[in-house]
Computed example of a mutant assay.
Amino acid sequence: MRWVLRSKIHRATVTETRLDYEGSITIDEELLERSGIWVGEKVTVADVNNGNRFETYTLPGKRGSGIIAINGAAAHLCDEGDKVIIMAYELVDEPIHAKVLLVDSENGVARELVY
């Protein structure tokens, strides 16, 4: 069995950082659904601006809001306006195709790809 990329939200813009929060990353519910990432799922977040990488879990944000909020301790690792890549993986014994959302500057879906 191998860990493979299942879903990715590519170059989303961080809209908020909230240090005084119980933790996680809040993602627009529409982006979660379209990418196939579940609420509560563990994700890896890579900050394109500074190279920081961390793991957390997802929470749903208001549908259509474009919210990408870095919460809790991870808020020290990103700044508002940073570009991030949000990745979810799956442990499988056969190859799968990853669903990838390319987003615009307001975190709307610009394109959907399958790897």
Rank of each mutant, 00 (worst) to 15 (best):
S65T: 06
L101R: 01
T13V: 15
V109N: 01
G23F: 02
L77A: 14
L113W: 07
I86W: 10
E55C: 02
E106H: 03
A12Q: 00
Y89E: 15
E90D: 13
V45A: 13
S24L: 09
D104S: 00
I85H: 11
P95C: 13
L31K: 02
T56Y: 03
D82Q: 12
G36T: 02
H10D: 02
V43M: 07
D28W: 03
S105A: 12
A98S: 14
P60F: 05
A110G: 02
N49H: 07
E80A: 11
T17S: 05
I70A: 08
A73D: 15
T56N: 04
V39R: 12
E55A: 03
G64P: 04
R18Y: 12
R2M: 12
D104I: 00
S7T: 01
L59H: 05
L101E: 03
I37A: 07
M1T: 11
I68F: 07
H97G: 06
L5P: 01
H76M: 10
G36V: 08
S105F: 00
L102P: 01
I68V: 15
A75I: 03
L5F: 04
A88G: 05
V39L: 06
L77V: 04
N107P: 08
E29C: 01
A12I: 00
N71M: 12
N71V: 10
K62L: 13
S65F: 11
I96L: 15
V103S: 02
L113R: 08
N49W: 01
E80S: 06
A69Q: 08
I37H: 05
A73H: 09
M1C: 10
I67K: 10
T26N: 13
R11Y: 10
L59T: 13
S105N: 12
V114A: 13
N49E: 14
L31F: 12
L31D: 03
C78H: 03
E90S: 15
V84E: 14
L101D: 05
V92N: 10
T13A: 09
V103W: 02
L59W: 11
Y115H: 08
N107Y: 05
G40L: 10
N49A: 10
V103M: 04
T17H: 08
K99Q: 09
N71L: 11
V114H: 12
A74P: 06
S65A: 13
Y89N: 12
T58W: 04
E16N: 13
V100R: 14
L102I: 13
G51Q: 08
V48F: 12
E30G: 07
S24A: 14
H10Y: 07
A110H: 00
A73Y: 15
S105Y: 00
V114Y: 13
V4I: 13
G64I: 04
V109R: 00
T13M: 06
E30V: 07
G64M: 06
T56E: 11
G66Q: 04
A110V: 00
A69I: 10
R111T: 06
P60Y: 05
E106T: 01
E112L: 08
T15E: 03
M1W: 05
G51P: 07
D20Y: 14
A69M: 11
